Simulated assay, not measured.
Amino acid sequence: MPLLDVRNLTIELDTPHGKVRALEKVSLTLNAGEIHGLVGESGSGRSLLARAILGIPGPNWTITADRMMWDGNNLMAMSSKERRNLMGSDMAMIFQDPSGSLDPSQTVGSQLMQAMPKNPKAYFWQKHKHAKLTAQKWLHKVGIKNPQKVMSSYAWELSEGECQKVMIAMAIANQPRLLIADEPTNSMELSTQAQIFRLLSQLNQLQNVSILIISHELETLAQWCDHLSVLYCGQVMESGPTDELINQPYHPYTKALLDNMPDYSGIEAHKAIMPTLPGSAPALQHLPIGCRLGPRCPEAQKKCVNQPSLSHSRDRYFACHFPYHGETTNDDPTA
């Protein structure tokens, strides 16, 4: 049984222009101990999916789903209190805006200690000292060189990269079963990015923490993730094991992402124009009918005005009328 099973999740937003579907029939399966990557352009709905899983929707959201299960329990049937308790123990998230997610009126140390689980073996006069030392240990693990100074600082006194590291420490200190990382290495230098991904990999291997990583960097996700899901404009284009998806993409959008990755082995001319898909992602108020990639897709045909259903071939899932490699497709049996 999968740890997280989401089927046909749709999120509608109330806007001045009427209701728009920011996510449409998105499915996601995450097994225990798996690292799953969500890749897509900005505005593809990756963060909306993460917030829907955690149970922190916006005031203008309408969420519907055929199935939304967590370890055999129906998330859609849980109360707000039950969802908050679940988020405080079994689920955690590293938010994309770290400085905006921290309380500016409290020190970083006090917020970190509040997020950490209490030590039941410590005497009451030792609990504060023990929590402080443990918080410093987690800050050191995520790459903060002076944890004592950061502990006594406020969020507005720290850089964006330091706030991001503090958010990562708060998320992993509780040792959740599922960690959702929304652009976890944003605003960080390359050496620190590698350190953070190694830390997440250690959590996954040593403590069996399932991780859902959200990023637009396909090259990075391909290195660390077991499975990948490709989103475009609120729809799942393709999903499957990382190695198979990278080596043999079925969907034209996935192939375009791979073809347009920078090639560092060759010598490019100065200010050479990199290959891209024509056009740009549509606004939510002007979404095309059928497949949302249709106006930009190099393989688009008349049939693409009808939205393709999620099809599968072995352990690969994709939504395309004309997939590459001529694979035999069937409708998703688990929907």
Rank of each mutant, 00 (worst) to 15 (best):
Q235H: 04
K129A: 12
C233Q: 00
T329D: 08
F318W: 00
K129E: 06
G37S: 10
T329H: 07
G240M: 02
R67A: 14
H36I: 06
K25D: 12
T276E: 08
Q175G: 08
M274I: 12
N306K: 12
E217I: 09
K81G: 15
G161T: 04
Q193H: 10
S152D: 11
D66T: 08
L203Y: 13
H227Y: 09
P104R: 03
L38F: 03
V26Y: 03
L102A: 00
Y232G: 03
P333Q: 10
H251W: 03
L203Q: 13
G33H: 01
T329G: 09
D182Q: 04
Q207H: 09
G72Y: 14
N330H: 13
K145S: 08
S80R: 11
I63N: 03
M93D: 02
P288C: 09
P104E: 00
D243Y: 09
H17W: 12
V20T: 00
F318M: 02
T62D: 14
D315H: 14
P288L: 06
E162D: 15
G161P: 00
S159W: 03
I213H: 07
L4A: 01
R316H: 07
G294F: 14
P333C: 02
N146T: 06
Q301M: 13
N8A: 02
Y154S: 10
C163I: 05
I56Y: 15
G88C: 06
A115V: 09
G45Y: 01
R198I: 10
A122E: 13
W70P: 00
Q205I: 12
Q126R: 08
S229W: 00
T254D: 08
V26I: 06
Q126P: 15
M76I: 14
G294C: 14
K121L: 14
L139A: 07
R51A: 15
P147G: 04
A52W: 01
P241R: 04
G58S: 10
R316G: 01
A52E: 01
L199H: 05
D263T: 14
E189V: 01
D182L: 01
W156Y: 13
